[in-house]
Amino acid sequence: MANTPIDSDAIRALAELLDETGLTEIEYDSGALRIRIAKGGAMTGVTYASAPAAIAAAAPAAVADPADHPGAIKAPMVGVVYHSSEPGAAAFVQVGDQVAQGQTLVLIEAMKTFNPVRAPRAGTVAAILVDDATPVEFGEPLIILE
């Protein structure tokens, strides 16, 4: 693996494709070469292997997916998420806050319209999974409500 050159042109092309499409993660796998690029401080990995089993063995251990959490509040649309109604204003919710059913948790701006994401039930905000003013995709977990 150490003697195999890294295809920097392929990595650059995938990174450009990531920016052009607005995606947060992209992966290319040709069997012998696997390249994964993710935005947001996630690790970028290149794996060379002679068999799919070797690729699976080289992959990191699975991390619990927040989208699978029973209290995950997911983005109902593609857009930009905002934690408050205007810049400088207090956030709608903080970790540890008690919320009532129907209470606004965040706003998602889509096509110049601000759409509230409301709590489907009462509970406690256990985690806020997205940063303010960041793009989100449909179905992306935003908040964990317990």
Score class of each variant (00 low, 15 high):
P66W: 10
I37T: 06
V93G: 01
R121A: 15
D97R: 05
G139F: 07
D19P: 00
I128Y: 06
M77P: 00
N115Q: 12
A15Y: 11
A89S: 15
L33V: 14
D7P: 04
Q98A: 15
V117K: 03
R36F: 01
A62R: 14
D97Y: 07
G40Q: 12
E140G: 06
V93Q: 02
P5Y: 02
M77D: 03
A2E: 14
A58C: 08
I11D: 04
L18V: 07
M111G: 03
A10P: 01
A126K: 13
I6W: 00
Y48Q: 08
M43A: 15
G88T: 11
L142D: 05
A100P: 00
E27I: 08
G40D: 13
P87A: 15
G123P: 04
S85L: 09
P87H: 12
P87S: 13
V80L: 08
V117S: 01
G79E: 06
G22I: 11
A15T: 14
A133T: 14
G40T: 11
D132M: 09
E16M: 09
R12M: 07
R36T: 12
A75W: 00
L23W: 08
E109F: 12
A119T: 02
A53P: 03
V46T: 13
H69C: 01
A90M: 12
A126I: 03
Q98T: 14
L33D: 10
P66K: 10
V93H: 01
V130C: 05
A53G: 05
S50W: 09
E109A: 14
G88H: 11
V78H: 15
A110T: 05
A91C: 09
A56V: 04
L107T: 10
D9C: 02
A53L: 06
L145R: 10
K74V: 12
S85C: 00
L105T: 06
I6S: 07
